[in-house]
Design a protein around this nucleic acid. Sequence first.
RNA 1: CGGGGCGUGGCUCAGUUUGGUAGAGCGCCACGUUCGGGACGUGGAGGUCGCAGGUUCAAAUCCUGUCGCCCCGACCA
Length: 480
Amino acid sequence: MADKENKKKVEAITSMDVDFAQWYTDVVKKAELIDYTSVKGCMVIKPAGYAIWELIQSQLDARFKATGVENVYLPMFIPESLLQKEKDHVEGFAPEVAWVTHGGLNPLQERLCVRPTSETLFCDFYKNDIQSYRDLPKVYNQWCSVVRWEKETRPFLRSREFLWQEGHTAHASAEDAEARTIQMLNVYADFCEEVLAMPVIKGRKTDKEKFAGAEATYTIEALMHDGKALQSGTSHNFGDGFAKAFGIQFTDKDNTLKYVHQTSWGMTTRLIGAIIMVHGDDNGLVLPPLVAPTQVMIIPIAQKKEGVLEKAEELKQRLGRVCRVKVDDSDKSPGWKFSEQEMRGIPLRVEIGPKDIEANKCIICRRDNGEKVEVSLNQLEATVEQLLVQVQKDMFERAKAHREANTSVAMNLEELEQILETRPGFVKAMWCGDQTCEDSIKEKYAATSRCMPFEQEQISDTCVCCGKPAKKMVYWGRAY
RNA sequence: CGGGGCGUGGCUCAGUUUGGUAGAGCGCCACGUUCGGGACGUGGAGGUCGCAGGUUCAAAUCCUGUCGCCCCGACCA
C-alpha cells in the first residue's frame, strides 16, 4: 500500500499516458498557474504563473537590449482603416479580431479593433518618425497583450488575450532587415535552449504557413512530450511590402527616396505551455531552474520540535545568497509539502529535520529525476549551486534525447503515412516546393510542414508526396 | 463553426428517471494531538441548484428558451 502510493505520488493529476490534454489541464491548475474566468479564453495568471513570465521577460529583455533593442509602448486600439491598409495582413487577421464599437453610450464613427498584433500601428508611427537614413535602423519592441478571438482556447497555448513581446524594426536595406530577422530568431533559439532547457529546430516556414503579409517567416519549433510540435517563436522579414502600403520612405545618402525594409518577431506566454509540455511529468510541473520563481524549497520535518524552524530559516538565509529560496513552514504534513513542491515544479527540495540537525546535514531532492542526496550543511551553498546548474543541463539533454528519439525519416508516401499514423513526433522528409503536396499531406494525415530547417539534409532526391524532384527537406508533424 | 460532455457551497460530485422544504467528500475557520511521501480528533461557517419564462398546491427535478464552461476536430502564437 505504502509502496504503491510512493509511485503514484498524487491522485489529483491525471497520468499523461491516460489523457495528455487532461494531464495538461490538471498540471496548470494544480501548479496554480492560472484560473479560468467568466470570459472564455481569458485567464487569471496567478502569482506562480506570472512569476515565470516575469523571469522569461527579464531574461529575454536583457538579450534584446544586448542587440540594441529599445522598448516602446503603442496603443491597444487600431482604427479599422489602418488595419485595412495591407491586404494580406487584414485577410489573415480579420476573422479573429475583437471590435470596439462604442465609446461610452455613443457609437464610434469608426470601429476600433483591439490589436491582434501591431504591425499597422508601428507602420503608421514609422511613416512620420523616419525621414532620413540617419533615422535608421529603428529597433523597437513592446511588451503588451494582444487579443485574438479564437474559437477553441486552452490555457497558455491558445487564449483570446495573451501576453507577448513584439519587436518591430525598420532598416535601410533588404540585407539589414534579413540580418535582423535571423539575428532575433537566433536570440529566441538560444533563449529557449539555454534558459527554458528546450531544444528547438530553426527553420523557415513554407509560403502556406508564413505570417500574413510577410515575405519570409522564420520559426523555432519544439517537440512536446506527446510528440506534437509547438511553434515557439517567429521572426518575419516583411521586405518593403508594409512600407509601400503605408508609405514609409526615407531619404538615403544618395538623396533618393527609398522604402524601408521591416521585420517583426514575437514570443508569447505560450512558452509557459511549452515548458509544461516539454518538461512536466505525472507529478506535475518541472521548471528549469533559470525560470523557476522558487528554485529551492526548504521543508522542515517535525517543525514544532525545538530548533527545526530556526534551522530552516538559517539555511534559507544562507541559500538566499546563491538562489531563490523559500521555507514551507505551513502546518501541512511533510508529505503534503513534498507533493505541493513537486506539483509546482520547484527544482530542488531541502529536507531538514531533527536527525539532520544533529548530524549537521540535510537531504536534497531533485525535482527532475527524483534523486536524493545527503549533504553536509558545510557544503550546502556549493552543492545547491552546482545542482541547479546540473538540473538545467540535464533537463535540456533529456528533452533533446526525447526529440531525437521521436524524430523519424520518411523516404516516400507509404513510410510517411506509416509513421504519422503510428508514431508521434517529427518526420523529416523531402518536398518539391509545391503547395498541393503540403495540402494533400495535411488533409490526409492532419500533419503540417513545421519548417524547412536551416540545417538541411539530402535524405532523398524526390518529394515524399508526389515523387518529383525535391527542393527542400521539411520537418512535418502534428502541431498545437 | 461541427461533434461530445457538463452547469447544485471554494473544489469534485450525488440527488433529476418517479416533483414534496438542499446532501456527501475534500477544502476553509478555531483549538488540540501530529510531522522523513498528501496525518487525526472535536467544534464551526458556507448554497436564491447558470439565467429567463412556463406547467403545478408544490420545481434542483417536468417543458420552452437562453447563456456559459470543458474535451475532440477544422483555423491560428
